[in-house]
């Protein structure tokens, strides 16, 4: 009967391992996306203490925006396109208008195309790091400060930064 017990024990371990493995897939997926630049995932942390460098190399950065679902907001980039020097810090912003009469909370997720260059798009100041609150009928300017890393591959001429805005007002009450 000890053989039987050994069998049960080892099978149960496989079951428990595979259940945990499904949760391990979540960080693994993130790491995989970061390494390969899939999904255009940008660095979600602030870059601090960056030094400007002169590279004399210029690329086009385009800005787009999407409002998830059919939420009552206007959300647009201030400038649709900028020509920037690689290695220099630039500032631009997005304009958000709340078309309702009540206080709302939003969050925005960034994504960069082409995905493999996402890691070179570094954000110094970005509204995507925090939940934003906006009063009814208010229009707000959301600033964005970024630098294109000097290691950006030479064949990249254009980068597109896209923000998707989500209404997270229901999390407001939860806090």
């Amino acid at each position: 009967m000890t053989n039987l017990k050994k069998t049960y024990l080892s099978i149960s371990i496989i079951v428990i391992f595979m259940f945990s493995f499904s949760y391990m897939l979540v960080p693994l997926y993130d790491i995989f996306c970061e390494i390969t630049g899939l999904n255009g995932k940008t660095n979600q942390e602030k870059i601090v203490g960056i030094n400007e460098v002169n590279t004399d190399r210029f690329v086009t950065v385009k800005f787009t925006s999407t409002v998830a679902g059919s939420e009552p907001f206007n959300f647009n980039p201030m400038e649709n396109e900028m020509i920037v020097e690689v290695g220099k810090i630039y500032t631009t912003s997005y304009i958000l208008t709340n078309n309702t009469n009540s206080l709302k909370q939003i969050t925005a997720s960034p994504s960069v195309v082409p995905g493999r260059d996402a890691e070179y798009f570094k954000k110094i100041e970005c509204f995507c790091f925090t939940q934003q609150q906006i009063n009814g009928k208010e229009t707000k300017e959301l600033p964005l400060q970024f630098v294109i890393d000097e290691d950006l591959p030479l064949n990249t001429k254009t980068l597109i930064l896209s923000y998707t805005m989500f209404n997270t007002t229901d999390q407001l009450g939860a806090k």
């Binding site: 079951v15 595979m18 949760y23």
Partner: peptide, 8 residues
């Protein structure tokens, strides 16, 4: 091997 992953 597969069913626990679905459960997760």
């Amino acid at each position: 091997a597969a069913m626990p992953v679905l459960a997760g």
